[in-house]
Simulated assay, not measured.
Amino acid sequence: MSTIHIGVCGWGDHHDLYTQGVKNRDKLSVYASHFPIVEVDSSFYAILPQRNYESWVRETPDRFGFVVKPYQAMTGHQRGSAPVDRRELFRQFEESIQPLVEAGKLKALLFQFPPWFDCTRENVQYVKACRQALAAYPFAVEFRQRSWFNVQFRERTLDFLRTIEAAHVLCDEPQVGNGSVPIVVDVAHPARALVRFHGRNHSGWRDPGEGQNWRDVRYLYRYSEEELAEWVPRIQQIADDADEVCILFNNNSGGDAAFNAKQLADMLGVRPSGLNPRQMELF
């Protein structure tokens, strides 16, 4: 039977999980009393020192898992910046995550490619090179350009992910053009499937508005019970084909991610075990 893990992206913004006065340095430990998995987003903005990961290993229980997003220069997000030594970047990143690897807490490296990373021969080769550079680790790919899943490329994209032994990341997000991908219910790697919920803020997905922080607007959304119910049969379907399903809520802007994550867990009958002791039940 497949194991389903449900969590959220980051652990700092989910205020419903923390009592007043909880310090930032204690939030991960408290978070790990609610959820068995988390996505590390800070690694996207910098290659973190090993001491960060060492601290996170200590603060979480033995069965806790981390999904880590590689540094943005590794996924092509820094357009127009000075050339970088990609081989050295990959080496530094690999070195940084070793505390998670040694503790057995690395669930996956989440390579999220940008909306302009379209389905071309050059980009296919780059994904393959990323996989080869980090061949020793569980690897997941999220595309944000619709061309990968157009009719003529969809099955070839999934076959490509199978060939390089990468998990396919299913996404729930607004359908607003080429910068978003459709829901593709398919498992590319039998060991693991990932699902990420980005919200359905159609108006804010591409244009947050003048003077607005795009992240604050883009991920401002609370799923309804009916919207989450749409995913129950989909998750059950992929759970039949993957040993493990990791579900992450990224609709963080309004404090909705933790609420929706718990809501979906109830719908699926998921009851995580091996969490940190919980001092107070908030939900």
Rank of each mutant, 00 (worst) to 15 (best):
N250E: 05
Q279W: 01
V270E: 03
P190D: 12
C119H: 15
N276C: 08
L220T: 10
P190C: 13
E244S: 04
R63E: 13
V8H: 00
E210S: 15
A166W: 00
G199W: 08
E95D: 10
T60F: 01
Q237D: 06
K23Q: 13
N150Q: 11
A129N: 00
F66E: 07
L48S: 04
S224E: 01
P190E: 13
V124G: 02
P49V: 09
E173K: 05
T19Q: 15
P83I: 00
G254T: 14
F149Y: 15
R206H: 08
E227M: 05
Y223Q: 14
G21A: 05
H168M: 06
K69R: 13
R79V: 11
G274P: 12
E225K: 10
R51L: 06
R58F: 06
E155V: 06
Q78E: 05
H189E: 13
F160E: 03
R87A: 09
F111W: 14
A133P: 01
N150P: 02
A167Y: 02
D62T: 13
Q112E: 08
F111P: 02
N150A: 13
K262W: 01
D16Y: 07
D118S: 15
K69N: 05
A258T: 06
H77K: 08
R271D: 12
S29I: 04
Q175R: 12
R234L: 07
L100D: 06
N251D: 10
A167T: 15
E281I: 10
P190W: 07
S43Q: 13
T19S: 14
F149V: 04
H202P: 01
E210N: 13
H34D: 02
V176P: 00
K105L: 06
G269K: 10
P70E: 04
E155D: 15
R25Y: 07
E102I: 01
R218C: 10
Q263F: 05
T19D: 11
G10Y: 07
F44T: 10
V184A: 10
F160Q: 09
I47V: 14
F149N: 06
C246M: 11
M1E: 08
F66C: 02
G76A: 03
A46T: 13
E165I: 02
A82C: 00
L228Q: 06
V270I: 08
A229H: 00
Y126R: 07
S224V: 08
T75Y: 00
S81P: 02
V40W: 08
H189A: 12
G204H: 09
V30S: 05
F113C: 00
T3I: 11
Q50T: 14
I164V: 14
V232H: 03
S253Y: 11
S273H: 12
D207Q: 14
A32F: 00
R222W: 09
V101A: 05
R86T: 00
F197Q: 02
T120G: 09
R91S: 09
L194G: 07
I183Q: 11
C9Q: 06
Y137P: 02
P208Y: 14
P272Y: 06
R79Y: 08
R206N: 15
P115G: 13
I4C: 03
V185N: 14
Q237K: 07
F259Y: 15
L100G: 01
V141C: 13
S42T: 14
